[in-house]
Amino acid sequence: MSLPLRPIAGTTGDVTAKNGAQSWFYTDVVKDHFFHPRNFMVEDAREGDYNAIGKVGSPACGDELRVWMKVDPESEHIQDFRWKTFGCGSAIASTSMASVMVTEGGGMTLEAARALKPQDIMDRLGGLPARKFHCSVLCDKALRDAINDYYRRTGQFDKIVAESARLIDPVAKVTDHDIEEAVLEGAHTLELVQQKTKVGIGNPGCLPAVEELIRFYKEKYFGAV
C-alpha cells in the first residue's frame, strides 16, 4: 500500500518519518544548535567576566533574549559571548549560531559584528521557515544592543548607533520600527503592512516613504527582492 512520496518542498529537514516521506521544518544545523546549544550562560553572570550586556524582547511577545559579551579592550575583538533565550526552536538555534559566529576565529571586531545581518545567521543555519525569520532578528538586535553597551561603558559615545524610532505616520502613530516588525511578521506588501499597522490610511501622503521602508526591510531581512 505504501506510495513513494517525495519530501515536502522547501524542507531539508532532519526528523524524518519512518517512510522517509516527511521531514521536519528545520535543517540539520538548526536541529544541532537547538538540541546542543553553544555558549549559553550556565551560571549567573559574574561581575567582571563580561564588559557588555544586551537585552531584547519580553516573554509577553513570545521571545526574550539576554546576552553577555566580553570584549578585549585593546583590539576590540569579541572574546566571549554568552546568552539566555526564552523562545521557540528557531530563536534558540539562531542565538546559538550567532554566538559561534561572533567568537570563532579569534572573535569578530565590534564593527564587523555590528555589520552581521540576520540573513548571515540564517545562511549559516541553512535557512529557517519563512514565518521564523523574525527569530534570527532578535539575536542580531541583542548583539547590537550589547555593542552599544560596550561603547557606553568605555565612554566611546560617538560610536553608539542609536536605534530610536522615527515617526512615519503621525496620524496613525506608526514608526519605522512598526513597519519593520510588520515586514518581519510576513507583511511584504503595502496592503498587508497597512492591515497590520493602519499606516497611511488617514494620511496617504506618507505612503511613498512606507513603500520605501518595506523595500528596505525586505532587502535587509530577506535578501535581494
Binding site: P37, F40, V42, P59, E64, L65, R66, K84, T85, F86, I92
Partner: peptide, 8 residues
C-alpha cells in the same frame, strides 16, 4: 529552563 532568562 536553563537556557531561559525568564523567571515568572
Amino acid at each position: 529552563r536553563a537556557l531561559s532568562p525568564v523567571n515568572v
